[in-house]
């Protein structure tokens, strides 16, 4: 694979977006650096892009040899928006690779396959632009561990929406997986919601621009991560739905849409009464990076 990568003159960057991931980031950095930089030189760069962790994430990642960037320090004049999508977007500016691999930082059973499994289709098949991970159910099931594959938000929200509006995208087994590898030429041309909707919007935009043929999927076996509370999944669903509706409107699939509120209302029980909690979930979007003058200058684009 490395021979083929070198033959094609490709460079590959790994981006790990973080926010308070001190428990898992060290292992990811050590494994990827040792196995995929030192032992097998598949990766040219490992970068952690942090949203402002208050734990030891930055210290741990740096101590094990990752390049660590604060999201707020990248393109500072464009401001800082809190959200994973912001880090992924800024990685396009900061990192050098022709291919960027995104791997979440909260994976307990991290393994080099999370990277080599994703980049292989891009190395061997020039027509592939975007490679998405999917997983089997983890063997170790406990109160803390749940399968990422076919997760609740995927099955209850995203898959029904794709079935209704983009049937071909239902071929993507795990549309919300946080692990994917993409060619720069694609990444720089798509907008990035900064929050929960980033993966969903990617799929719609890449499908719209390059067709279903641009996608490949890799079976990464198992992914074990922290279980998320149902209330948090509600927030995620809200963000995804807002992004999705916005895409439907911008593509003319639906025409009339009222102004969408950024407020999600949930209830929680306290002693003998219920109280309402209001979350403000703003799904802002970053423009395609290729429209940013600093990026064009940095990459020498006319």
């Amino acid at each position: 694979m490395i021979e083929e990568k070198e033959k094609r003159g490709l460079t590959i960057s790994l981006c790990i977006p973080t926010l308070n991931e001190e428990k898992t980031i060290g292992k990811e950095v050590v494994l990827f650096k040792s196995e995929l930089v030192d032992r097998y030189p598949l990766l040219d760069e490992i970068a952690v892009i942090d949203s402002g962790s208050t734990d030891r994430t930055i210290e741990v990642a740096a101590s094990f040899g990752a390049s660590v960037y604060l999201s707020a320090d990248i393109l500072p004049h464009m401001g800082f928006k809190r959200g994973k999508g912001e880090n992924l977007w800024k990685a396009i500016y900061q990192l050098q690779g022709d291919i960027i691999v995104y791997v979440d930082a909260d994976i307990k059973n991290i393994h080099p396959r999370f990277v080599y499994g994703l980049v292989a289709p891009l190395i061997y098949r020039p027509e592939i632009k975007y490679v998405k991970a999917f997983y089997d159910r983890p063997l170790a099931l406990s109160k803390e561990i749940r399968p990422s594959g076919g997760g609740r938000v995927t099955e209850i929200l995203v898959r029904p929406l794709f079935s209704l509006f983009f049937p071909e995208l239902t071929a993507i087994i795990q549309p919300l997986s946080g692990e994917y590898a993409v060619r720069r030429e694609i990444l720089e041309r798509i907008p990035f919601p900064v929050g929960y909707g980033v993966e969903t919007s990617h799929l719609i935009d890449v499908y719209d621009g390059w067709g279903i043929e641009a996608f490949a999927q890799t079976d990464l076996d198992k992914r074990v991560h922290r279980h998320q509370a149902t209330r948090d999944l509600g927030k995620m669903s809200f963000g995804i739905l807002r992004t999705f509706l916005k895409r439907l409107k911008s593509k003319g699939i639906i025409k009339d849409l009222p102004e969408l509120t950024p407020f999600l209302r949930q209830f929680q029980a306290r002693e003998d009464h219920y109280e309402q909690i209001i979350h403000e979930i703003v799904e802002e979007e970053r423009p395609p990076m290729i429209e940013v003058p600093e990026y064009r200058a940095k990459r020498g684009l006319e």
Binding site: E22, K23, T24, G26, K27, V30, R56, E59, V60, S63, F64, K108, N109, L139, A140, S142, I145, V224
Partner: peptide, 11 residues
């Protein structure tokens, strides 16, 4: 083998 063998690497 049924036990979760995930290791945690701290600094």
């Amino acid at each position: 083998a049924s036990l979760d063998h995930t290791l945690t690497l701290e600094p």
